[in-house]
Design a protein around this nucleic acid. Structure first.
Length: 443
RNA sequence: GGAGAGAUGGCAGAGUGGUCGAAUGCACCGCACUCGAAAUGCGGCAUGGGGGUGACUCCAUCGGGGGUUCAAAUCCCUCUCUCUCCGCCA
């Protein structure tokens, strides 16, 4: 959400930055035209209100002195203004709504170090600050090699038995899955492992948030008004609640309409929740297997920071997500998303793409974004800087998956599969699996 | 689901139609007193918007929205939320 005053003062910079965004048609000329109308209406309305207030005050004084004649005279005078004020108020409401609607659909401006590009093909691999392909490789597992042709996750022996799409479809339709037995337990182990890692090693506070949220919360994290079609809604009476598409929504909105003390920042929150997405517009894509589901589990991280620290926090959060894959021994790469691929609310996004040998490709498993004050403005989330009499400032918000549990399950199944259809359990998950070193083996 | 009460500044809490953006207390900041601190005294301390180079000034805001009135924290409608009691329930 943009500040119209900032656009007014930085019109050229705004237009230049907006033009880097694919398909964005916002122009400062149009916005400032609305703003000029708005200010004109406000100025005239304020003048009329000022007169009314002054006269009303005199009426009060006249009545206090029992001067009814004088009061009646003044009341007649102020009656003239009555014709204008309600109209002026209505005009102001209309033009404020118009401006708000126009500003609501403008995507965030990206940082200068976001590469220009049209789509994901133009994303640039990232090796960390001052990092290189060599230094990054030292921290990451290499691509696994196989003495047989690795299968896709749904064909790996144990998964073929315990991943049930047919039954799920009978109950709920396409893009749902039922996990059973050891595969279900492995999924649970992954979620527990990630949550424990972030809470004990990375300083995040564990949260169990609501999974159903209001429109206002969705506006705060930019799902509304532009991306309503991607959501599922529940209906009760005349009201609706949305099923969260990501825990980013409730976690980030925890600070909405509040003024935090600077000492409370950074505020780091994490949650393991189910996520629900309609996947409108992706019909026919990734239809086999559980890569793209209407419902999936995800561990989400959210950080609320001061403006000065958000960029560093972004790198830190990327490291938190990477730690998950490093400890699981999964090969991956990090992509700095180009202007055409960065999400609506982000100033910059890193995607973690895990290697899937069965598909012989990298697939997104985590997305880590820094949003600046974009969401904070939509939520009215501020903090009061330490020190004397400082005015509140908007916080900065960041969010990242750490990581998508369902997709991580796929990665484990494909990367740790054995020729006999069994799957080795990564060492860090074994405590969560009752010490099992492998699942789906004979006996 | 039924009945009732309520929502006021960072917090607590007055204020039931006119000079109220709002008493008082706490917290916080500054100054005085003090070797220093505590205590005490004095002063300051909401948010958003319009206008002005500026000192400054005007408008709006007492949970959200709408209305009555010359004038609304105060009256009416509505929504949201909180609390109490009853019922039901994981």
């Amino acid at each position: 959400m943009f500040d119209i005053k900032w656009i007014r003062a930085n019109a050229e910079a705004f237009d230049a930055a907006v033009s880097r965004r694919k398909g964005s048609v916002a122009s400062s000329v149009d916005l400032l035209a609305i703003d000029n109308r708005r200010r004109d209406i406000i100025t005239r309305l304020n003048e009329a209100q000022e007169q009314r207030n002054a006269l009303s005050k005199q009426i009060g004084q006249a009545k206090a002195q029992k001067d009814e004649a004088r009061a009646a005279e003044l009341m007649a005078e102020v009656a003239r203004l009555k014709a204008f004020i309600p109209q002026g108020e209505a005009d102001e409401r209309a033009v404020e709504a118009e401006l708000h609607a126009a500003l609501s659909v403008i995507p965030n401006l990206v940082f200068d170090d976001v590469p220009s590009g049209a789509d994901e093909a133009d994303n640039v691999e990232y090796f960390g600050r001052n990092g290189t392909a060599e230094t990054a490789a030292l921290q990451r597992a290499p691509k696994p090699s196989f003495s047989f042709a690795p299968k896709e996750h749904y064909d790996v022996g144990v998964a073929a038995r315990e991943m049930d799409f047919e039954t799920a479809a009978r109950i709920s339709g396409s893009r749902f899955v039922i996990l059973k037995g050891q595969v279900a337990r492995l999924e649970r182990a992954l979620g527990q492992f990630m949550l424990d890692l972030h809470t004990t090693q990375h300083g995040y506070i564990e949260v169990q948030p609501p999974l159903l949220v209001r429109d206002e919360a969705l506006f705060g994290t930019n799902q509304l008004p532009k991306f309503e079609d991607d959501l599922f809604f529940t209906q009760h009476g005349d009201n609706r609640l949305a099923l969260i598409p990501t825990a980013e929504v409730p976690l980030t909105n925890m600070v909405r309409e509040s003024i935090l003390a600077e000492e409370e920042l950074p505020l780091r929150l994490t949650a393991l929740t189910a996520c629900f997405r309609s996947e409108a517009g992706s019909a026919g894509r990734d239809t086999r297997g559980m890569l793209r589901q209407h419902q999936f589990n995800k561990v989400e991280m959210v950080s609320i920071t001061t403006p000065e620290t958000s960029v560093d926090e972004h790198e830190r959060m990327l490291g938190c997500a990477e730690a998950v894959l490093q400890k699981l021994g999964l090969h991956y790469r990090v992509m700095n998303l180009c202007t055409g691929d960065v999400g609506f609310g982000a100033k910059k996004t890193y995607d973690l793409e895990v290697w899937l040998p069965g598909q012989n490709t990298y697939r997104e498993i985590s997305s880590v974004s820094v949003c600046g004050d974009f969401q904070a403005r939509r939520m009215e989330a501020r903090y009061r800087p330490a020190g004397e009499k400082q005015a509140p400032r908007f916080v900065h918000t960041l969010n990242g998956s750490g990581t998508a549990v369902g997709r991580c399950l796929i990665a484990v199944l494909e990367n740790y599969q054995q020729e006999d259809g069994s799957v080795l359990v990564p060492e860090v998950l074994q405590p969560y699996m009752g010490g099992l070193k492998s699942i789906g083996g004979q006996g």
